[in-house]
């Protein structure tokens, strides 16, 4: 049986999996990391976005076996239990940038990747990342306010960027 050996949120993972198992199903149903949500299963809505090798990836369009040897990070990695929210998470909370919260983890991961890029946070890059996500509740306005706040902060302020 094919297997996947990698790290997920810094923890080593080694499992035999069916070749056809999606990364999203692997994370959610095998590793119990249910913070990654599945909204469309054809790569459009962006809810399932996780970081693979530090880059945003649609977990519903990737097989678990393809993550072999590639570190995966999910929304659960952004703030340790009991620790403060990350910069992006905190900005979302302050600004009511989520309603039902279903699409939110994917957006947080895409924006986290932008924050981790070299140099000052670029609003253009952040908005471009948001373009890859569908949110049906907020109308995006408060997400934009959160992005504005993140871009206005010096990079080292607030919780860790992930």
């Amino acid at each position: 049986m094919p297997y996947v050996r990698t790290t997920v949120n810094g923890q080593p993972v080694e499992r035999e999996v069916e070749a056809r198992l999606l990364l999203s199903d692997f994370l959610r149903h095998e590793l119990d990391l249910t913070g990654t949500h599945v909204g469309c299963e054809h790569g459009v809505c962006g809810a399932c976005t996780v970081l693979v090798d530090d880059r945003p990836v649609r977990a519903c369009l990737m097989l678990a076996v393809q993550a072999n040897g590639k570190p995966v990070r999910t929304v659960e990695s952004l703030a340790e239990p009991g620790q403060p929210l990350s910069r992006v998470q905190a900005a979302f909370k302050r600004n009511h940038a989520l309603q039902c919260g279903f699409c939110t983890p994917g957006i947080l991961m895409s924006l986290t990747a932008v924050l981790e890029e070299e140099g000052p946070v670029s609003k253009e890059r952040a908005v471009d990342a948001l373009r890859g996500h569908l949110c049906r509740c907020t109308g995006y306005r408060n997400i934009m306010t959160a992005i504005d706040e993140i871009c206005a902060e010096p990079k080292e302020v607030g919780g860790g960027a992930g």
Binding site: T34, G35, H37, V38, V75, L85, F92, L98, T104, L108
Partner: peptide
């Protein structure tokens, strides 16, 4: 929000 932002929402399929 704190719970939802940490990925601790509990939606049906979760």
């Amino acid at each position: 929000d704190d719970r939802l932002l940490r990925g601790n929402g509990m939606y049906l399929d979760d």
